[in-house]
Nucleic acid binder design. Structure first.
Lengths: 315, 315
DNA sequence: TATTCGCATGGGCAATTACTCATATTGTAG
DNA sequence: CTACAATATGAGTAATTGCCCATGCGAATA
């Protein structure tokens, strides 16, 4: 019943959205055509937007974004760079970057040749996956590049492998283990488990990976989400850590911090930039140092970011 | 100068459109962010829409459209069916159908395997091509399935091969000859010309073709555009002709009319439905009979139409 | 240099859209 | 059957948007 109700509502919303955005009707006309009140029509249109039934994409290469992209590409010898416009004044939404990642993922997944695609975690990737259209692509495999167990034992919220599995019908492979092991030796044990070993092997074969970048400032996601304590964060900062990808912390030169957190990162080794494409999706002033470090040391060979961040990286 | 001015304007328009539709800013905010007046911001946003810098697409399978599509598919054994929502009250715009054709074309053209794609003529196809994004795909070949010379010797306006060539950078092959020859024998002569013979051979190899369908009522496009006289139209109607594709007139059973106009159609033979996909793009009450004839006799094996037309076809 | 033309700009106003809140309806549990 | 909760609806209102017009700026032309 509720199923049906929702479906019909979404149908109507889609129809209303189509009439509004594509056919250019006013909400009064839509109300008349659908036989509802104007307010209801308005709600349907707004629902079509908020539920992403209607997708809007910018189809024009904004010159300055293109210029920034090509400068980033040559400066850091990157293989894939995408720069989306910024929304000055709303510096914290992942909006544009997520959309761009979604588009890239859709492009990849709609290709016929089978691929193994690695995905990390984070708000940006999560938002990207949510912006994707459902797609049927059993030829590909999607493998998580991090554990999916939060410190309290629950499923880590920003792990995106499950969101992807909901959205696209491709075989997907979570890493059934914590993000951080309690010690280096526990990590070894975990990695020797048969199921995990197999998934790790699969991850190593990924030809494209998407990862988020976390900063290690006072609001480091690793700390905010409870993966590390404040003391551990302080120690890492003292050791020069500026950012983190897949849990691996690194300093301003893009060199992995020795010991400490990195001894316990349960993720597979960082994917190869010689044999595969590793795309970082990140934006924001607080991440600039981390992103710069990652691209300078070529921890990644692809970057999707926004205009402001691109400018800061090149400054 | 104008080049630069326009480019910057389009840049600004794209940016404004992005801020408006993607980031959800109001026009006041956009005005502030771009440093222009609110009115200018409004103009930029509206420009972004009218210039199609911002593309909107419906990303939700409206149940009734899906149902109609699958019923059409099974009833007429079609290989490709797409049904888009109708805009009740605006029955004459090619809007939705053209967008759907554009999406299908973009999908085809962005595939890596080389293809030969045939295109017919007509308002719907023309609108579809105009709705496409520019795309670089030198691997494909696009070949016109009709002549491109109007009766008065000028370029036939609704020939779309040139529009396509403007839009996508793929080798394209017009048919440098009239749509209708003056006689059957002139047609033979035309078809033996070296340049044309080669293009005809190419057309025969098309693996996908898109064609419009014209009705043969009192406002038959073939007549309105001056390709045939009113007497010829009347004669064709008397002979039972209900529609026309690529100039080939056919009756309600989808059987080509013997003699008359069809003796003079300069187009290559109708593409094979055994070895290739032939998609008709058409909608409208006045075309229902023609479309039904075409799908019943399998003159086409693909159809892109709208809800109302689909309902009429199934009635 | 003066004139005219084209076009961009911003004010003002009408139309349209978004939101808030009170009320009605539907479904659900006791 | 009643009460409750959740949700949907409609009226009223504030905010936003679209359009027309008067004004001004700059370029082309005489």
């Amino acid at each position: 019943m509720r199923q049906d109700g929702t479906r019909n509502k979404h149908d109507d919303a889609a129809r209303a959205g189509w009439l509004y955005y594509v056919a250019g009707n006013t909400q009064d006309e839509i109300a008349a055509k659908l036989g509802v009140s104007r307010q209801t029509a308005q709600r349907l249109v707004s629902l079509a937007m908020s539920e992403k039934l209607i997708k809007v994409r910018l189809d024009h290469p904004i010159a300055s974004c293109l210029a920034l992209a090509s400068e980033l590409r040559s400066r850091f010898a990157l293989d894939l760079v995408e720069v989306v416009p910024s929304d000055p004044g709303n510096p914290d939404t992942t909006l544009g970057v997520a959309d761009a990642v979604a588009a890239e993922l859709e492009r990849l997944l709609s290709a016929p040749e089978p691929r193994i695609i690695g995905v990390g975690t984070g708000r940006t990737l999560k938002a990207a996956v949510e912006a994707m259209s459902p797609i049927d692509c059993p030829q590909h495999k999607i493998v998580s590049l991090t554990g999916n167990i939060a410190p309290d034992g629950s499923a880590a919220f920003y792990n995106v492998i499950f969101s992807i599995a909901d959205k696209v019908s491709a075989p997907s492979f979570p890493m059934p283990m914590p993000v951080l092991a309690s010690s280096a030796s526990e990590r070894e044990l975990l990695h020797q488990q048969v199921g995990i070993e197999r998934t790790l092997a699969l991850a190593a074969q990924a030809s494209v990976s998407f990862v988020g970048i976390g900063d290690l400032g006072p609001k480091a996601p690793l700390y905010m989400d409870g993966f590390i304590t404040q003391d551990e964060l302080k120690l890492a900062q003292k050791a020069g850590a500026v950012g983190e990808m897949l849990g691996w912390t690194f300093n301003a030169d893009g060199v992995l911090i020795q010991g400490m957190i990195n001894d316990r990162v349960a993720s597979p080794p960082f994917p190869s930039r010689e044999t595969s494409l590793v795309v970082a999706a990140a934006k924001g002033a607080n991440k600039v140092d981390a992103i710069r470090a990652a691209v300078r040391r070529r921890l990644v060979n692809g970057l999707i970011t926004d205009e402001e961040t691109a400018q800061a990286l090149l400054a």
